[in-house]
């Protein structure tokens, strides 16, 4: 009965191993990934290092302002006598954490909106996509500033928790996700519409699949490729948004250091201590650039033209 020879079938090879090989071929992306890994590792050393050097990064010491680099303060001290290096390391933790968390949150939000719109179609789709179109056009920074200025005690939060560092951190993550989910939504919608009309979804429906099953089993895995690519590129934009917002004073506020708010004071000090303006910005730039290169590499690795190589005709 069997009239297909097994030899004609190529060995199964996971798409992921192919992709990883391609990604490794993108040298700039590979170097960037290594750079980001090292940077993250260094930033995570902030606490142990501060213990070792005996430094409290948030403690001001007006007698030790603008110290040059020395054995205890490897990059010197800032205008309030705080250690620059340790603050940069903590700032890096914040930036990277905000970048990853906000991207994750907006992916969830965007996929929820996009898949709902795309899979249900009709009026739901029309309304949701009009909303998305408008959101895409809006100027993000002014919107973020208003959201950053919202007084959470007016929403029923106690003053203590609204002012806690964790809350301020989460609030940044949430507001960035709230204004910037639209790209994800568009991508998810386009994918959902494509997959919705595939015959395999129809076959599953005939076999008794409900909408939820089809979304989870068929739609999400099949739209994951463009989503992963877009998410990687989003991380960089989020880090920029967070640092801009913190620089303007509506993001993460001192004493918690971030690369953005470390530059806020630097603006007043450009004559007396211009070097303080260099490190945080350089780190933002290098990190965002590296993330974008990694994003480019992921896009290259996930290029669908490479996935068809195994197809036999």
């Amino acid at each position: 009965m069997t009239d297909v020879t097994v030899a004609a079938l190529p060995a199964p090879r996971s798409i992921w191993s192919l992709r990883f090989e391609k990604f490794r071929g993108h040298r700039l992306a590979m170097y960037s990934l290594v750079f980001l890994a090292v940077l993250t590792a260094i930033c995570l050393m902030a606490w142990p290092l501060s213990q070792y050097l005996g430094i409290d990064p948030n403690k001001t010491n007006l007698l030790a302002r603008f110290k040059a680099p020395n054995a205890q303060h490897w990059l010197g001290t800032d205008d309030l006598g705080r250690d620059v290096l340790i603050r940069l390391m903590y700032g890096g933790q914040v930036s990277i954490a905000v970048g990853l968390l906000a991207t994750f949150l907006m992916t969830v939000l965007g996929v929820a909106v996009g898949v709902t719109a795309g899979f249900l179609g009709g009026r739901t789709d029309a309304v949701l996509m009009r909303l998305t179109d408008c959101m895409i056009a809006l100027p993000l920074i002014p919107l973020l500033i208003v959201l950053g200025a919202v007084d959470l005690t007016k929403l029923g939060l106690s003053a203590a928790s609204a002012g806690s560092p964790l809350f301020i951190f989460l609030r940044i993550v949430i507001i960035i996700a709230l204004v910037d989910w639209t790209t994800m939504a568009r991508i998810a919608r386009a994918g959902a519409i494509q997959v919705r009309d595939r015959d395999y979804v129809r076959a599953a429906t005939v076999a008794g699949a409900k909408r939820r099953y089809n979304v989870l089993v068929h739609v999400l895995p099949n739209i994951s490729t463009p989503l992963i690519v877009a998410a990687t590129l989003t991380v960089g934009r989020v880090i920029l948004l967070e640092s801009t917002l913190s620089f303007l004073g509506f993001g993460i506020v001192p004493p918690t250091p971030t690369w953005g708010n470390m530059l806020t004071n630097a603006q007043q000090l450009i004559i007396s201590a211009p070097h303080l303006a260099v490190y945080p910005g350089l780190l933002i730039f290098a990190t965002v650039m590296a993330v974008n290169f990694v994003g480019d590499g992921v896009r290259y690795a996930f290029d669908p033209r490479a996935e068809n190589e195994g197809r036999s005709h």
């Binding site: 069997t2 297909v4 097994v6 197809r311 036999s312 005709h313």
Partner: peptide, 18 residues
């Protein structure tokens, strides 16, 4: 077997077939 495909096909992905 009923449709004339080998059992080895079970672990493959669709793009590997004509």
């Amino acid at each position: 077997e009923q449709v004339g495909m080998p059992a080895e096909a079970a672990q493959r992905y669709p793009h590997q077939f004509s």
